[in-house]
């Protein structure tokens, strides 16, 4: 662990802009800057991470690190920053971790098997607004990995459940629901993520408010898949 002094921080700066200031300072002194992941800085791409003072994405609820502003800290504070810590997220360098395990879970079944073209008109299947809205809520997961970092078991169940329940709720997604949940869960375990013990730290720390209800739905989908025989082992 290294401690760096940072000066000239305004309350309107974002947390990452504070790190920019530090990095510029390090560069001018001939040091190498601190590597951290970030891209859109609008809270939507899911690229930024950081465990700040013991909290995933810092102290503000419902906020990604890039949308966290320095007005939430006091002058003179010492802030502790760590990378996401999970066996399935090896560290590349400094604060940059490898989250490709989450992509591989998506590849195991996080899709509806339709090719481009030859699909029915979009209004062919009416979907109740309440269901569409719920599916949308689940679909807003940004795959940042905060749920894994916050979980004492390093489980990715909240992330996984968001995709499973989004697709299971929609008529288009029901066709493959059973194989999907089994395959995605198998990949989740193979990647070395832990099991879910229903603590709820994931949902409490999720920057976009993915609900714990999704995990309940995931469990229901999984049991229902297991109860029939035509699915994968």
């Amino acid at each position: 662990m290294v401690t760096y002094p940072v000066k000239g921080i305004s309350p309107d700066m974002s947390f990452l802009e504070m790190l920019d200031v530090l990095n510029e300072d390090l560069l001018l002194r001939g040091d190498e800057p601190i590597a951290f992941d970030h891209d859109c800085r609008e809270g939507i791409c899911g690229m930024c991470s950081l465990y700040i003072n013991g909290r995933a994405h810092g102290p503000e609820r419902g906020t990604t690190t890039c949308q966290l502003h320095m007005r939430h800290f006091k002058d003179g504070d010492t802030i502790t920053i760590e990378p996401w810590r999970a066996a399935a997220f090896p560290v590349h360098r400094d604060l940059v971790v490898d989250r490709s395990a989450m992509d591989r879970i998506q590849q195991a079944g996080g899709y509806i098997s339709v090719n481009t073209g030859g699909v029915p008109d979009a209004n062919t299947i009416p979907i109740p607004k309440t269901i569409a809205d719920k599916a949308f809520d689940a679909a807003t997961c940004i795959q940042c990995g905060a749920c894994v970092a916050a979980c004492k078991n390093a489980s990715a169940m909240l992330f996984l459940s968001a995709k499973v329940s989004q697709l299971a709720m929609l008529p288009q997604g029901k066709v493959e629901a059973k194989t999907r949940v089994e395959n995605m869960l198998a990949q989740h375990d193979a990647e070395g993520f832990g099991a879910c013990s229903n603590i709820g730290a994931c949902a409490a720390e999720c920057p976009v408010g993915i609900s714990l209800d999704n995990i309940a739905m995931l469990n229901r989908e999984y049991i229902s898949a297991k109860a029939t025989s035509e699915n994968v082992a």
Binding site: I112, T116, I125, P126, K129, A132, F136, Q172
Partner: peptide
């Protein structure tokens, strides 16, 4: 495009009647 996205499970906004 809209047909394709709906088939993929993109949750577009809908009216109470269930249409887009």
């Amino acid at each position: 495009i809209i047909d394709q996205c709906v088939a993929q499970g993109v949750p577009f906004a809908r009216e109470y009647g269930g249409l887009l």
